[in-house]
Amino acid sequence: MSKRPFLGWFASPSILIAFGIAASFLAIVQFSLRAHIPGALDPGGFTLDNFTTLWKTVYGKAFVTTVLLCWWTALFTLLIGYPLAYAMVRAKSARLRSAILLISLTPLFLGEIVRTYSWMIVLGNRGFLNATLMQLGVIDRPLDLMFTMTGVVIALVHFTLPIVVVMLAAALSHIDRNLERAATSLGAGRIRCFLTVTLPLSIPGIVTATSTAFAWTFSAFATPQMIGGGKVQTISTLVYQVGFASFNFPLAASLSLVGLLFTIAVLALFNTGIHRLERIGAH
């Protein structure tokens, strides 16, 4: 008798796809080691030039910008996402909980373009925000939000909020309510109870959410491209520019590769952080 019925049938499509993924990864590695011949699409011989080129200021600046964007976005998303997740998990009525969840998820499901375009209309010099503030007399010159880090961060926070809320809510909903009840019965007020019980117990969730926010921001393209408008260069926008404006695919490949390695390193760091936290939690 066959002890593993369907193994071959069920596994082969995914094996095929896995080969595709592996091959495209190898293609990037291979291209990153090839010389760029201006004007030609086919790459030249093997070289390490692409990686030495990356030491130039443009690329270094893009790295710094990307990391700063990741940092600010993760920070503000957490600050906004935590209360939202908390309110959702603690909502007394199921209706309210569903409503908060659905609203939090909208940015995720409306897609990058609709979302980013909408922010362009909000943040533009003659956009909703500036027009409203000027009419109210709060400011007399439009705020510079488009083509700035601030604008990009605002839109990116909006972009990463759904996934962060979902992860924080998952963590919060798995905290035993009786622990909070115990703290309250021991005389802790609501604020103290939150600071000494709920918040510490949700730290693993916070770390996971942060690392995800980081990864999402790192790979975001439409938002920095459209709201940054070339003034805020990130790795993602630079890869696209190098690839499709100067058709230097070898350089684009090496830039992607370094970016990917950087992401993996950062995520690994977060991961060890989580493990360490879990080990502390186990005692």
Partner: peptide
């Protein structure tokens, strides 16, 4: 889940 979408796009394009 980890590889940025632009890297996936670039990889399959090159491939």
């Amino acid at each position: 889940l980890i590889i940025p979408n632009f890297t996936i796009g670039l990889g399959l394009l090159i491939l």
